[in-house]
Write a protein that binds this DNA or RNA. Structure first.
Lengths: 335, 335
DNA sequence: CTGAAAGCGCTAACAG
DNA sequence: CTGTTAGCGCTTTCAG
């Protein structure tokens, strides 16, 4: 098989020393323009590409950033990754992405592996298991070694790291208020995100709005599998003309359940979701939803990671909140 | 800041030589059980983790596999990645994933970067630009250096690499035949995948079925943005009672367009899609679709990559075809 | 059974 | 301006 050309190979080819070649390619002022030219053309001809491992071993900088997400099937995370990829590439970094699949153990493994390959920084959105157990040792290890850590979306505030989250409280608050404006007076929260930080924040936002409006919160905690049954049961015993959900899928499931129970959307019940994905846009009726600005989160997350790893001195954690946007479509009445 | 513990650190800690420590941790028979024990406990205490770069530099094996996909927002690719991640982890490999965003240039960059970090194998699904231009030099370079290459889904047969694809021809053929069985006699193909290998294969399957049934194929080539307009125009001039689409989104868009044109699904027009994602399952009516077995593709793809890179001798390219499955839901009439 | 030494490909002092 | 040398952390002969 052919083998990759190394500095040594070009050096021998040109009867120069390895270090001269290295410096020439790095455009060092120590080297004459003449030899630079010779070296560079030779390098191009021989298709020289520097070995990132060797370079990394020397400089302990790898120009890679590790990312751990709980789940890739979720539209939100896919979009975040897009935003990250884009921003990372622009800055000459590449991403190595791991999926924890909501499991603490897999998350630990991923963190270990990222640490093994010496990524320059780590970005993470916590698995639901991690959020429940609050076991954070693996992440504290990262901080201990001064590897920049930035959490996003599902974060734990006990961890002294950078973070970027959306304003979940305000998103849910705004949703509730919007339903109220369209005439809803019996608004419930339908949540399948009971275990995560974002789920809790959204519940708080909903509660605050409802209390401000002067009535009692009604929260249905369920799972996607049981949603239809639980919502149907709820409908038997309660007045309901508005639903705030914690995510896109449960909004869709809720609308399907409402249809089965002969409630029309939005005439009988208004529905608002979180995450502005393909489902929300293309369902019938199209879903009014809270847009999470996923690409922007991805972008900021990378920017903070790079800033942090390139900083000479360690700075205080940056906590950033990205504002959401209410996208009004047809699952809520017009005002 | 703290620094990671190295072999040297444990060696000094225990007054042993670096090589002894290395061998002890590798369970070499040269080392006595007593010292092995001492070394291993020390390693655990000091949280030793081998530096993957140093190891890779020495062994030229990194236990990482590079993956390039055109797009991550598409449910199919997200699922494939899940399947890959899972299988890779099981075998002690990790993935570094790049997104070409359908751009040839980005694809080249990704390939270069993967080659720089010395991944042990590369898995790719071609960008649409690559499929159009058929520029394959960057991929031939990979083969030239004997790095195992496995293409999936969107492949180019001129490239002498392993590949795993679904039976696109049969999927489209079966779809068409199924529509026929439910009574459709004017079946069109609605394609937004004109430029890709899979789009062509699916068109061929549709054409074969239609010819077998004794009438002329009607193919609407369009883009997602123009789909509604193009389909509406088509409806004016043509009889139509069945649509085979090349993907999930266009099936949904088609159903929305049909609704606007006052055609009921499935009573007036039957619709079948490709890709069995959340949209297909949760739309109203739920979409009859061709399931692509994405996780299986991901899994096989990794297996072939690992087999290939661990083989002592180079073997002939493996070409694998995964069969699809027709999932019958409510967007087609019952037989 | 343990240790010394070479070398993977690269960078960067330091000499010349 | 160019070359020699050391060393990043690890594996692996080869000596002891």
């Amino acid at each position: 098989m052919a083998h990759k050309t190394t500095l040594k190979a070009i050096a021998e080819h040109l009867n120069l020393s390895i270090s001269t070649v290295s410096k020439a390619l790095a455009d060092s002022p120590e080297i004459s323009d003449a030899t630079k030219l010779v070296v560079k053309t030779a390098a191009r001809q021989l298709k020289y590409r520097p070995n990132a491992m060797a370079r990394g071993l020397k400089s302990s900088r790898t120009k890679t950033i590790g990312v751990v997400i709980p789940n890739i099937m979720h539209n939100f995370f896919a979009k975040v990754i897009m935003g990250m990829e884009d921003e990372a590439t622009k800055n000459g970094y590449s991403l190595v992405t791991c999926i924890s699949n909501e499991s603490l153990q897999k998350e630990k493994q991923s963190i270990n592996m990222l640490s093994d390959v010496s990524v320059d920084a780590i970005i993470i959105s916590l698995s639901s298991e991690t959020q429940q157990t609050e076991e954070l040792e693996h992440l504290n290890d990262i901080l201990y070694f001064d590897i920049p850590l930035v959490q996003f979306d599902r974060v734990n505030e006990k961890l002294l790291s950078h973070s970027v989250v959306i304003n979940d409280f305000k998103g849910a608050y705004d949703s509730t208020m919007h339903l109220h404006k369209t005439g809803c007076r019996h608004i419930a929260l339908l949540s399948i995100l009971t275990n995560t930080s974002v789920g809790k924040k959204r519940a708080e936002g909903y509660e605050a709005a409802v209390r401000e409006l002067g009535y009692e919160p009604k929260i249905i905690n369920t799972k996607l599998e049981n949603l239809e049954a639980d919502l149907s049961a709820f409908l038997k015993d309660n007045d309901l003309d508005g639903i705030v959900t914690t995510d896109e899928s449960s909004a869709i499931y809720a609308m399907n359940a409402l249809r089965i129970n002969n409630r029309r959307v939005p005439d009988d019940v208004g529905v608002i979701g979180f995450t502005d994905g393909a489902l929300a846009r293309n369902y019938f009726p199209p879903l009014t939803t809270i847009k999470q600005q996923a690409e922007i989160i991805g972008k900021r997350t990378i920017q903070i990671a790079i800033e942090s790893l390139e900083a000479k001195t360690k700075k205080d954690p940056i906590q950033e909140t990205i504002e959401t946007e209410l996208v009004i479509r047809k699952s809520t009445r017009t005002i």
